[in-house]
Design a protein around this nucleic acid. Structure first.
Lengths: 113, 113
DNA sequence: ACTATTGTTCGATAATAATCGAACTTTCAA
DNA sequence: TTGAAAGTTCGATTATTATCGAACAATAGT
C-alpha cells in the first residue's frame, strides 16, 4: 500500500475521464462521493468483491476523478473537484447535475453475502 | 441501407454517452461536428478504413450523439444538440467547451493511402 | 504476539470493444 | 448498363476491460 499516484491536474484528459464514467459502478461511486464529500471504499462497494472495487477505484484515481488517502486501516476517497474544475471548468458541475437528476442507470448491488 | 435507428431523446443514458466519448476518434468526430454543423463520413475519417469509421459512427448514433441521414450517396451527420440538451441540459455545452479548448487528446490520422 | 478489518495485488478467465479486409447495396452520372 | 463513389455489414483477429478468488500488507485493538 505505498502511496497512490494521483495524476496532476494538468495531466487529466477527457478520454480518461469519460472512460472512467462510462461504467455504471464507477458513475455510482462518483455520484455517491458528490453527495457525501468523503467515504471509504467499503461504504461504496454495493456488496461487490473487494478486488473488483479496487480495480474501479484505481481507474477513477488514474482518471484523476478521485483522491484516496489512507487513514488508519481504511481509505478515504473524495472527488477531486478543485483540480477537475481547474483543468476543465464547469465540466464536473454539469456532469454531476445531470447524473444526480436521473441520468445514471444505477448499478444495482449484485451479491448478498 | 435501411434508415438508421436513432434512439429517442428520453432513452439516452450518460453511460452510453460517456462510452461513446471515451474514444479519441469519436471525440474528434463530435468536436468536428460541433464546428461545422454537418459533415459526411468521408470528411471525418482521418484516413482510416471505412469499416472502422462505420463502427464508430454506429456507436455515436446508438449513444444518441449523432444523427445521420442519407443524402444521395453520401450520409450527412450532425450532432443531436437539441435532443441532448432536452435530456441533459447543459451537459454537451460543458463538454464541448472543454473539448474545444484543448482537453481532447486528438486522434492523429493513421494510414496514408 | 494474535486477530480482525480494510483494502491492494496477482493471476486466470470471461466479456466487450476496436481494427480492418472483403463483399455488398444504393445512388448518381456517363 | 456499366462504372465509380459512399457507406454498411460480415467475419475474423486482436486488444482492452471486467470479474473475482486467493494471497498479501498495513493498521489497530486485545
Amino acid at each position: 500500500m505505498r502511496p497512490y499516484k494521483h495524476p496532476a491536474a494538468d495531466q487529466l484528459t477527457l478520454e480518461r475521464i469519460f472512460h472512467a464514467l462510462s461504467d455504471p459502478i464507477r458513475l455510482e461511486i462518483v455520484l455517491h462521493l458528490a453527495r457525501v464529500e468523503t467515504a471509504t471504499c467499503g461504504e461504496l462497494d454495493g456488496d461487490r468483491p473487494k478486488s473488483s472495487m479496487s480495480h474501479h477505484f484505481r481507474i477513477l484515481r488514474d482518471a484523476g476523478l478521485v483522491h484516496t488517502r489512507a487513514e488508519g486501516t481504511t481509505h478515504q476517497n473524495s472527488l477531486r473537484l478543485t483540480d477537475l474544475d481547474a483543468r476543465f471548468p464547469g465540466l464536473m458541475h454539469a456532469i454531476l447535475a445531470q447524473a444526480m437528476s436521473g441520468g445514471a442507470a444505477s448499478a444495482k448491488p449484485r451479491r448478498k453475502r
